[in-house]
Design a protein around this nucleic acid. Structure first.
Lengths: 139, 139
DNA sequence: TCGAAAGTCTTGACGTCGTCCAACTTTGGA
DNA sequence: TCCAAAGTTGGACGACGTCAAGACTTTCGA
């Protein structure tokens, strides 16, 4: 709680009650929530929060570097508090998005493309999870 | 466009007038149009074509393997008649999507992830195009 | 030729996602 | 305290996409 306020301040963001509420959800989650998921999750405990404020706040956080924004699945933006470079796996069956550590995949040549100033890149892997072995958690 | 009719037939698709009209745009373009762009482009010459038919037709083409579908930029699906594996570059400034040949980037380890049946993967590169000399590169 | 069945298309309603704007409230500095 | 700036709200709006019902077409057998 306190550390979120500090975090906002160090990023030159006024820690209003609404922003702290959004931050406490979206900066802590391990999921990759959509804006609507953030809206529903936060209004559960902060009912007067408006949709516009959620969108304003998320965009502000992106601009300030607290979040990254992706469009990996069908037509909705997701937000990711994990801002260091990493790759993503998208489960075809559920749409779930899972982080893949940067070192797990080696990429050569992506930052050296003619005529392009590369800002960043990532590998997007699609497929399905194997449920048979390798799980100690039954679904 | 006889060859489009043939192409549809060989993919077990009834070549109705509407489908041929959509195919003549979306299977020929080098762009990565959204469904709405397809709708507007095709209705320009086929005014009675309905939105639902465009969506139905695009999904049918995807199911039959004539198109691929991506969600790379802000919240809209794009369709790509280039169905062989390749990578993509997204221009931050314009949102334009450009194909990158598969051989241009080498990726190791993406198809060997524990617990995942990989269907396909691609590298998504973001940045901006160099228009002239890049002296004034801020950030 | 006729009629039925299957396939295809259209209309219009609907839901979601996201933006915009004008009005209101809160904050912080002088 | 007062005022301006910053932040928030609700509602309207538009883009995107889906769905169901009915109409229209094509096919095909009798």
């Amino acid at each position: 709680m306190k550390q979120v306020v500090e975090l906002l301040r160090t990023h030159a963001i006024q820690p209003s009650a609404q922003r702290v509420a959004v931050a406490n959800y979206v900066l802590v989650t391990k999921e990759h929530p959509t804006a609507e998921q953030v809206f529903h999750a936060v209004t559960a405990t902060f009912p007067t929060l408006s949709r516009a404020t959620v969108y304003n706040t998320l965009h502000l956080f992106v601009k300030k570097g607290l979040l990254k924004q992706f469009a990996l699945t069908e037509g909705v933006l997701v937000f990711d508090p994990h801002v260091e470079p990493h790759h993503h796996f998208v489960d075809d069956e559920t749409g779930a998005i899972v982080d893949i550590p940067w070192d797990r995949i080696r990429v050569e040549g992506a930052d050296d493309l003619p005529g392009i100033d590369v800002r960043d890149f990532q590998v997007v892997v699609r497929g399905k999870r194997q449920r048979r072995r390798t799980t100690n958690k039954a679904t």
